[in-house]
Amino acid sequence: MTMENIFGFSISPSSTVNLDNVDLTLFNRLHELEPDAWKCMSCGSCTATCPAGNFSGMSLRKVLHALQRGKEKDAVKMLRCCMLCGKCSMVCPRGINTRHLILSICKLYKED
């Protein structure tokens, strides 16, 4: 038993985002291709319907959040499980074309 969860609590790693240190070049390119990239209001409908979420914690809401904050690694990890079924596009109250957005992310970003 490690020190961190000795009392049943764990200390989460710092998730501080310093936007000054974030390189948003790729995200800006994505935004040019997909104006919808800033349209998300994080309602989570996509996450609620996502069949991949069951297996992997995939959540388009989180993916967009992560990309907007420069945390590309997290986003890429989640996207690896997307099955492109398209349910998210049907429930999105903002009318975001999620499938095209996901494919564009897949084109621009690389696994590393």
């Binding site: 297996f55 992997s56 890429v76 996207l79 690896r80 499980c81 997307c82 099955m83 492109l84 494919l103 992310i105 897949c106 084109k107 621009l108 970003y109 690389k110 696994e111």
Partner: peptide, 14 residues
Amino acid sequence: VRKYGLSPDYSSID
């Protein structure tokens, strides 16, 4: 024929 940087992989699904 499109080129993608990211390719989903479902091998981890149990």
